[in-house]
Design a binder for these strands. Structure first.
Lengths: 331, 331
DNA sequence: TCCTATCTGTGTAGCGTTACACAATGCACC
DNA sequence: GGTGCATTGTGTAACGCTACACAGATAGGA
């Protein structure tokens, strides 16, 4: 910058003002500075220096969970990210995706990223990355929990929504089952009866499972007899395998509460006999295949997270879900 | 940091070394520093200051085109982004999405973003954002062109691929048509015959259109009689509308070369009589509906772009496509 | 005993920028 | 001609960090 100032025959401050408060300098000086900058190939103030001086980076950090791969393969995570991106675009702020899931370095990366605040996508209570984000003394907004001091929570009331969906799908069922997202950080795939929600590491999954259990109990169904098929990702191919295991262990399965529309469709496709099915998210898939589902907008929730991270009041999304009844639960 | 140094009774340099080269300081000093940092709530070196000093940000910038919304709604753009993210994760670098599409400010944002290099997602030749990115003197890698001095290109040979797809889908056709992505920056939706590829602003779309024209000519079809339906986004709902317009203007339409599987499926759904259809990308949709399609991996291309942006040699993707023949073209 | 090598801690200087206070100028007004 | 005000340019100081060169201490070898 000082080179430009010298070449233009003005002081560095004049150059700085030329870029930041053009009205502060005369048209003459401005022209001189612009010409000198063009000649020297100076593209404008250095971003790092500027944010050092300014004390803020005008950038929002996003942590997408243990493995970036899972996040980008999950349309819901993408929708969430889109919502964040929208808010960032409105405000002219950058959106920095912090790469995690590659090892012990994750924490350092979270600490060393040049961001003003963090939005954390659904993760486990004990995720070290989460601890690192909170430890940086930057504002942290967590989607779907867990609850921590100094962080803001955004998300729907998954337990209530799951209870409503469960009531619908289990209503006439004699052999109900659940198709679930992972319950531990290793993303084990398995089928087991009566999984205790309290042992689930992911808050969102925990709440949904608790909600399904509530619904089962409301209907007098013995939860300890309800098989839960756990999938490692929100992926149809794997879900069908898990569904086959469910069918093998529970021959006359007649209802499946699934934690996503993808999983629900996988269940339908594997089912031989008629099956009541509910999904989650009200995606295109649900509409196309007439799935009963819990409608929510991850995009709006992403936007709310971003807004909250910027320190502005965000709408409360706890009640922002709706049970959409369709043919997959009889109507 | 100097506060921590004072509290720990050491020099600032010792604190710095504690974080950056822990082996450089004695275990004793390290412990003192860590304790002082914990007490004072110091989370580690400030990222902005560090990158100012270091001269690099260890962050890759991504420009996704005019409107972020379009990008996140397009699964192919998301796959591309996922590929970039993967490479960033491997290298421990951040991935900064620069928000554009909000007005004149776009250029400033691109210039003012704290990144070491840029990857630009398919855009028009004359996109001012592209010019801004190139003007920052940072390495720029462009997906799908256009060609500019000092930038690297990554992408398949769209023209050759379109020619192959066109040869397949137009083979027995008497009334062929094309379903295209936008051809101008305003993303106008319309139907017109014999669109001249040279007038198309998006290089990828231009090449594909030219390839379809090549194929038509090879088969002795008069290009000026071939209607092209232009959709503003990669969205099925709108594509069906455009397809209806095509059918209205060309009653006995019997072949559609579409620039994506979504568009191809939209064409199939609207068609009353048998229709030869080809798509693009070999997505789940194509597999499910047995669509002939041009297979390519946007994810790999994203990874290649990121690798190239970091200054490393990236594989040549020009030939990384394959025509997948399925039932939608009779075989 | 002296010389060298290793280990650990410290000071300096500068990365590129901008907030702030101040100086110089011109102009209008009484 | 002096006063007040707006306009425009400049210097200083700091934002927080680390590469580098150096200093003191300790140990080992000749």
């Amino acid at each position: 910058m000082s080179d430009v100032a010298r070449a233009a025959g003005v002081s560095p401050m004049t150059v700085s003002y030329t870029y930041n408060q053009p009205d502060r300098v005369s048209a003459e000086s401005r022209a001189k500075v612009q010409q000198a900058a063009a000649v020297l190939g100076y593209a404008g103030p250095d971003p790092s220096a500027r944010s050092l001086r300014y004390g803020a980076t005008r950038t929002l950090g996003v942590v997408l969970g243990e493995h970036l791969t899972y996040a980008f393969d999950d349309p819901q995570a993408v929708a969430f990210l889109a919502g964040i991106a929208e808010v960032c675009a409105e405000r002219g702020c950058g959106l920095l995706i912090v790469p995690t899931g590659t090892g012990d370095d994750d924490r350092n990366r979270v600490v060393a990223a040049a961001v003003d605040a963090y939005v954390v996508w659904t993760t486990t209570d004990d995720d070290p990355v989460l601890a690192a984000a909170c430890g940086t003394r930057r504002p942290v907004v967590i989607h779907g929990g867990p609850d921590r001091d100094g962080t803001t929570l955004v998300g729907i009331d998954n337990r209530a929504a799951a209870r409503a969906a469960g009531a619908e799908v289990f209503a006439t069922a004699r052999r109900p089952a659940v198709l679930s997202f992972p319950i531990d950080r290793n993303r084990h795939t398995f089928v087991r009866c009566g999984v205790d929600p309290d042992t689930v590491a992911y808050p969102v999954t925990r709440d949904r499972l608790a909600g399904y259990r509530d619904a089962a109990r409301d209907l007098g169904i013995d939860w300890s007899q309800v098989p839960v098929g756990v999938c490692s990702t929100n992926d149809m191919a794997e879900a069908r395998t898990v569904m086959r295991q469910l069918l093998a262990s529970t021959p006359r399965l007649d209802a499946v509460a699934a934690m996503s529309d993808h999983l629900a469709l996988a269940a339908l496709r594997e089912a031989a006999s008629p099956l009541r099915v509910s999904g989650w998210d009200d995606s295109d898939i649900a509409r196309e295949h007439n799935l009963t589902t819990v409608a929510q907008s991850l995009r709006e929730q992403g936007a709310a997270c971003a807004t909250a991270a910027f320190g502005d009041p965000a709408p409360d999304h706890r009640g922002a879900w709706r049970l959409v009844r369709r043919a997959s639960t009889g109507g």
